[in-house]
Simulated assay, not measured.
Amino acid sequence: MRLIASDIDGTILGHDGTISTRTVEAFAAAAEAGIEIVFVTGRPPRWLDPIREQIGHTGTVICSNGAVTYHLGTERVLNSHVISWDTVAQVRDIVTALAPDARFALESLTGLHVEDGFLGNRIPAGSLNVVPAVLTADIADGGIVKMLAVLHTGNADEFLELVAPGMGALIEVTHSAPELALLEMGPVGVNKAVTLAHYAASLGIDAADVVAFGDMPNDIEMLGWAGAGYAMASGHPQALAATALVAPRFEDDGVAQVIESRLAALRLA
């Protein structure tokens, strides 16, 4: 184990915005042992305060499902992959034809741009610090790294099953919303695993020496790529099906338990 790659929400971070003391201490012990730590999340760079403030992480974070590599200490984008406006327009037409009530938002390197109706009653605007706006081509000037589509009924699995076949090779489609019909769409050929592999290679670390944790469909590729990919026992069935390794439930500090066990094994080796 030379590198630990962990998802954030539902894996180490709860709905209340806190990371357990045991988990914080486990990551600190791993760092002290010389193991590289990288967080790999669907979150954009501006929503990383929990790992900076609670874990004290100031290194690399892979954001927006692999579309952005960000250095938390210097608050600098190291690399990014963007979606063209033409692709946004085509995807919007496809999704709207299949789900006329869908509403959209665009995550760019300059912020989150949401159209009227996207937030609804299930996504509180105050938690996002955004104002609904008309989605126009000039947003692409800021580098669109993720496209979001929401239905205010149903769930993400149903929404994904409805629209994914119509996408072809136009865009990557996934989700990480356990209770909301919210889809996350990114540049073709980009996911958590692809960007993590590049990052690990830059450090001279092979997949076999990577331990990864995740709980949702947007973690599937990462869990399959890592030498030891752990799905959370409390995670989505598709994440659990993607790997033979299962960490205990989030509520039981599953990530901390695995890290503690692996560190103990290293000390005995």
Rank of each mutant, 00 (worst) to 15 (best):
R249T: 10
G227Q: 14
V145N: 06
G235W: 10
H198S: 15
A207V: 12
S234N: 12
L240H: 02
L72V: 14
V246K: 11
D215Q: 08
A149L: 03
D101T: 15
A241I: 00
L180G: 00
A269H: 14
L109V: 10
G17P: 11
E32P: 04
D7V: 06
H198K: 14
S64W: 00
V210Q: 07
M222W: 05
I123H: 08
T58N: 12
P187C: 07
G117C: 09
S127T: 11
F213R: 08
G117T: 11
L223H: 06
D157I: 07
N79P: 00
P45C: 07
D209W: 11
D86C: 03
L128D: 03
R52D: 04
V211P: 03
G34P: 08
A231L: 10
F118T: 08
L106H: 11
L266A: 08
E251Q: 13
P178D: 01
R267E: 15
L13S: 04
Q238I: 03
G186M: 02
V210R: 04
M147W: 09
A239C: 06
T195Q: 15
P178Q: 01
M222K: 07
L3W: 10
M222S: 07
V211E: 02
A105H: 07
A97H: 14
E260N: 13
G42W: 00
D215Y: 06
T11N: 13
G14C: 12
D252N: 13
G224F: 12
M1C: 01
L170Y: 04
R262L: 14
R76D: 14
M1F: 00
A181C: 05
T41R: 06
S80D: 10
H71Q: 08
I171D: 03
A193L: 10
H71P: 03
V190S: 03
M147R: 06
V258H: 03
G142N: 15
V150W: 03
C63A: 09
W47K: 09
E32S: 15
P50W: 00
G120S: 12
A164G: 02
G224R: 14
R52P: 02
A233P: 05
A242T: 01
